[in-house]
């Protein structure tokens, strides 16, 4: 259990920093909320994309489901905020199971293409079924119930929500990383035939990973929805958001606990800074970063670091 207590200490440090940041003067809450949300979203994506090796470029669909469930659940179905988010998570799980059982027969890049298509169809539905979703014009969340007397439109409240969200996702990944499920996912990613020879049912592991990944992404979508308070299907369901989530995890290191979080920090903070310097260039920088990472650090920053440390530790032990 040494392994696990080590990661508990890391998590405690993460939460401590998160609690300390708002105490600094002049805290930019919007920036920090975005950062924490993307840490959570990218870490959730990584459960499927990194640990299980199924690259999805359709995760924006789950963000959309979470955000729209909050908005529609509270404003149209009269649910309280927590039930609405639970509804979103439930829908996400069902959707992931259906989606996965249809497409997990596809190999590699074909699976990725199918995720793009499915998210795109969902986006077209969100735009065209205006009677329910507000359509292309988007959806304003004008009022939200106040769970435990918390005003969900207040930036400080949203910040702590985002912190709880990011910390929970990280805790979840840490919990399985050193246990059976974590290794089953990695076995499926590395080689499905060999995984079967270890008694693993690859389809079942992939479905479980997809459901968990989708659920946590939808949870983040709920927090994101409260933060945005204006839901735009052109953003929430669209490919660029999916790409951004995937990219964040890939740059930091797929299939590592802290990789996606590092990726989020490296991408969100400079992107916010660049935004004021030259408005449109941040996507250009994203593009260059993807190229650099795939060419020179294909396993991501933390991924290459872990590999290096493993090699060095082994070499040292050998004398």
């Amino acid at each position: 259990m040494k392994r696990f207590s080590g990661s508990l200490a890391q998590l405690a440090l993460f939460i401590a920093v998160g609690l300390a940041l708002p105490l600094l003067p002049g805290t930019n809450f919007s920036l920090l909320i975005t950062l924490l949300l993307f840490i959570g979203l990218a870490t959730s994506w990584d459960i499927l994309g990194g640990w299980t090796g199924q690259t999805s470029l359709g995760h924006a669909a789950f963000v959309g489901i979470g955000a729209y469930a909050l908005a529609l659940g509270t404003n149209r179905l009269g649910l309280d905020a927590i039930s609405a988010v639970q509804l979103g998570v439930g829908v996400a799980v069902l959707f992931a199971l259906l989606w996965g059982s249809l497409t997990f027969g596809l190999r590699g890049s074909y699976f990725t293409l199918s995720t793009i298509a499915i998210a795109e169809i969902l986006r077209l539905a969100a735009i065209n079924e205006a009677w329910f979703t507000g359509g292309s014009a988007g959806l304003f969340i004008s009022s939200l119930p106040e769970p435990f007397g918390l005003d969900l439109f207040e930036r400080r409240v949203e910040y702590y929500l985002a912190l709880v969200y990011a910390a929970s996702v990280l805790a979840c990944v840490m919990w399985f990383a050193s246990g059976r499920f974590g290794y089953e996912m990695r076995a499926v990613r590395e080689d499905e035939a060999a995984a079967q020879a270890s008694g693993i049912n690859p389809t079942r592991i992939k479905l479980r990973a997809f459901a968990l990944s989708g659920a946590l992404t939808a949870l983040g979508g709920g927090v994101y929805g409260a933060y945005l308070s204006f839901l735009d299907p052109h953003n929430l369901f669209f490919l660029p958001l999916s790409v951004q989530i995937a990219l964040t995890a890939i740059i930091g290191g797929r299939g590592t606990v802290w990789g996606p979080a590092l990726g989020a920090t490296l991408l969100i903070l400079p992107a916010e800074l660049f935004r004021s310097v030259f408005a449109e260039a941040n996507l250009l920088i994203y593009g260059l970063l993807i190229l650099i990472v795939t060419l020179f650090v294909p396993r991501g920053l933390i991924g290459e670091l872990e590999r290096y440390l493993l090699r060095r530790r082994y070499a040292r032990e050998q004398g």
């Binding site: 090796g53 690259t55 590699g108 890049s109 990725t112 990219l247 890939i250 797929r254 993807i290 190229l291 795939t294 060419l295 294909p298 396993r299």
Partner: peptide
């Protein structure tokens, strides 16, 4: 890793 050409 698989999918690298797609990402590139």
């Amino acid at each position: 890793p698989e999918g690298s050409t797609l990402l590139a």
